[in-house]
């Protein structure tokens, strides 16, 4: 596969490979097709993921399955209140060699391709912030020395929405580093039946390898070449701008809107989805699909409206309904019709 140019053929090949990846993960995780597809989008866009859900819903299993099927180096850190930044980034160790004592940097678990940060909100803010540089700049600085992280590098963090005692909510700056925040929901009755049939307690499922890390990196590079038409750029800009307080009817409930990083993330996610579907250009539909995952954790809703039941999901649904792809509005006597 040529990784320098993006043609309709290479896009189709990439799409085929990604569908293979999706199928391999779906063989292990049942009833999570949308979640798996969104995780693949995050991998293509080179973004980090924050998974939120109750214990036992398969968050860790999802990450482990991806690491196995992609043949990526994976490390897992269980975040606890006594975890120190050095426990993540690594520490300089005093070593004696040839009669001389020197500090040798001992790499922490962050030096991996896929880092699973389990229950990230249980660590102290100091430890949480140790991940900031790693996530944004893909490097770590310890005692004045900067160390580059391996490529690709992804952080898949999980957090539990209950049992909030003794937890430290992630600061906004930290949240902004995550491309997507995904909610993991309980399985349906049919899915549970499948799980019971296929899995036995204490037995690890066998994961089929579908793609190498290099292949993923090449496809990820192709993602950056997906064309973003003017209308899509304009739509992303208007959508993000409309999250600012009082910039749209929907944004009356907003205290703080999404950052420019959100716009960049939205564009990357739209590109990734286009490639996943074998297209060489992104569309407004791609933006609409990615918007809830990209914007949801980047906006802050007024306290009063939050108490009245306004959620990020409901706000974004209203926003998408309000902002038209075309800049011009339609008269009241007309509404957009779509062939299904």
């Amino acid at each position: 596969m040529d990784n320098t140019t993006l043609t309709e053929q290479t896009a189709a090949e990439a799409s085929q490979a990604l569908k293979g990846l999706s199928a391999a993960v779906n063989e292990i995780l049942f009833g999570q097709e949308t979640l798996i597809e969104t995780v693949i989008l995050a991998l293509l866009a080179g973004g980090h993921l924050l998974l939120e859900g109750l214990p036992g819903l398969g968050k860790t299993e999802l990450v482990r399955t991806f690491s196995k099927t992609l043949d990526l180096d994976t490390k897992r850190v269980q975040f606890t209140p006594d975890l120190l930044p050095g426990d993540i980034t690594g520490n300089p160790m005093l070593q004696e060699k040839d009669g001389q004592r020197t500090f040798v940097f001992q790499e922490g678990p962050v030096f991996t391709n896929l880092l699973l940060a389990d229950e990230i909100n249980r660590a102290s803010p100091k430890t949480q912030s140790a991940l900031l540089e790693a996530m944004q700049e893909r490097r770590v600085t310890v005692m004045g020395t900067t160390y580059a992280l391996p490529f690709p590098f992804f952080v898949f963090a999980t957090q539990n929405p209950i049992e909030l005692e003794g937890t430290y909510p992630l600061p906004e700056a930290q949240l902004d580093r995550f491309l997507f925040k995904l909610n993991v929901y309980s399985a349906s009755k049919e899915t549970l039946e499948k799980i019971i049939t296929a899995r036995t307690l204490g037995q690890e499922p066998v994961v089929r390898k579908s793609m190498t890390g290099e292949q993923l990196a090449r496809i990820s590079q192709l993602t950056n070449k997906v064309f973003l038409p003017e209308i899509v750029k304009s739509y992303i800009a208007r959508l993000v701008h409309a999250t600012y307080p009082n910039e749209s009817t929907a944004a009356k409930v907003i205290k703080f809107g999404a950052s420019p990083r959100a716009a960049i993330g939205l564009a990357s996610a739209a590109r990734a989805r286009a490639l996943l579907e074998g297209r060489i250009h992104a569309s407004v539909d791609d933006v609409r699909m990615a918007a809830p995952h990209v914007l949801g954790h980047r906006i802050i809703i007024n306290y009063q409206d939050r108490m009245e039941g306004v959620t990020p999901e409901s706000f974004i649904a209203k926003l998408i309904a309000e902002i038209n792809p075309e800049e011009a509005e339609l008269p009241k006597s007309l509404s957009a019709a779509k062939i299904k």
Partner: peptide, 26 residues
């Protein structure tokens, strides 16, 4: 006319194909 094109591609579910074609991409 550009708005009309966007409305058409939205209506027909063409996933911005007309906009991309207008810009000479496809």
């Amino acid at each position: 006319q550009r708005d009309g094109l966007i409305r058409l591609e939205e209506h027909l579910g063409l996933k911005s194909a007309l906009s991309a074609a207008r810009e000479g991409i496809i």
